[in-house]
Simulated scan of single mutants.
Amino acid sequence: MPETPETPETVDISETSETSEVVPVPGRRRRGRTTLLIATAAVLGLVAGTCAGFLVQADREPTKLPSLSQPVLAQAKGEGPEPLSAAQDWKVKTDGDLRKLLLTKPKGAKDAEAGDDGWLTMADYADQLLRSGEMFSDLASAEFRRAVATGWDVGSTYSVEIRLVQYRQEQSLAAADRTGFWNVDGASEWPVPGTGDGMAYVTNKPKIDPGYLPLYSAEAHAWRGDIAMEIWVYDSKPIPKAKIMDLAERQMERL
């Protein structure tokens, strides 16, 4: 016959050590239901508050907006500043007759040909430059506006030519760009005082052509605002630096 399993012996608690105590294990609380109830109540409270706000606002009269027209401000008493004179307002000078800004010929000098009554069209000005066809296109791109010229002769060999060329300058600072266009090889050069980047040049060696006297030259280029200044001096003998610098400084003072 099969053996009957033995019944385990019963342990008597009283036989255990007197210092041992049985510590009860606390049971876990079920929080899922409580948390859900709290969250639901919070959402319902938010919705109820929003609805109450809309109802309160709907019962109120609309707030009137301020008028778009502003009150007329009283003008301050006293006379305003006087307008600038033509001598002080640069734009008044440069938008007027440019010929009035040119240096006048010295006593004893003879007038040289200088365009149609001093005015130069873009074609006239381009014809006085090397590669006139190419220069005409460049002047159009540089927004040429107008130009004036003057000149005089002293004796049989000394001559001066001065040109003021004005640009519209809607796209670029053409007057400054054109001033930096000039470059005189084999010449001594100096900055023209008070003009920023204006320069004066004096050739050290003359140009010699058969049947003609030696030709020395000096030139100066500077700009102010939308006007570029150009000065040329020619003589059969070397031209002193002081001569071209004096012309350049006096002409720039008139701009």
Rank of each mutant, 00 (worst) to 15 (best):
P2D: 11
E3A: 13
P5D: 03
E6S: 13
T7Y: 06
V11M: 08
D12C: 02
D12P: 04
I13E: 14
S14C: 03
E15G: 11
T16N: 11
T16R: 15
S17V: 03
T19A: 14
G27M: 10
G27K: 10
R30F: 11
R30K: 13
R31A: 11
T34R: 15
T35P: 01
L37V: 14
A39V: 14
T40R: 08
L44R: 07
L46A: 13
T50M: 14
A52D: 04
L55P: 04
A58T: 07
D59S: 15
R60S: 13
E61P: 10
P62V: 05
L65Q: 12
L65C: 06
L65V: 13
P66L: 07
L68S: 10
S69C: 01
S69L: 11
Q70L: 12
Q70T: 09
P71Q: 00
K77Q: 10
G78C: 00
G80D: 00
P81D: 02
L84H: 01
S85A: 04
Q88Y: 02
Q88W: 03
D89G: 01
W90L: 15
V92M: 13
V92Y: 05
L101C: 07
L103D: 05
K105M: 05
K105N: 02
K107I: 09
A109I: 05
E113V: 10
A114V: 03
G115M: 00
G115W: 02
D116V: 07
D117C: 00
T121S: 15
T121E: 06
D124L: 05
D124I: 03
A126E: 01
A126R: 07
D127K: 11
L129M: 13
L130Y: 12
G133K: 15
E134M: 10
S137R: 15
A140P: 01
A142S: 12
R145K: 14
A147M: 11
A147N: 01
A149M: 13
W152L: 02
V154H: 02
V154R: 08
S156H: 12
E161Y: 14
E161P: 00
L164Q: 06
L164K: 01
Q169T: 00
S172C: 02
S172F: 06
T179I: 06
T179D: 03
T179R: 14
W182A: 15
A187E: 04
A187W: 07
S188Y: 04
S188P: 01
V192I: 15
G194M: 04
G196N: 06
G198Y: 02
M199E: 10
A200M: 09
T203G: 11
K205R: 12
K207H: 06
I208T: 10
I208A: 05
L215H: 02
A218E: 02
A220D: 02
A222Q: 00
W223H: 14
G225Y: 05
D226E: 08
D226P: 03
I227S: 03
M229F: 08
M229C: 03
E230D: 11
I231F: 01
W232N: 10
V233I: 15
V233H: 03
D235T: 05
S236H: 12
K237H: 08
K241I: 08
M245D: 07
E249H: 03
M252W: 04
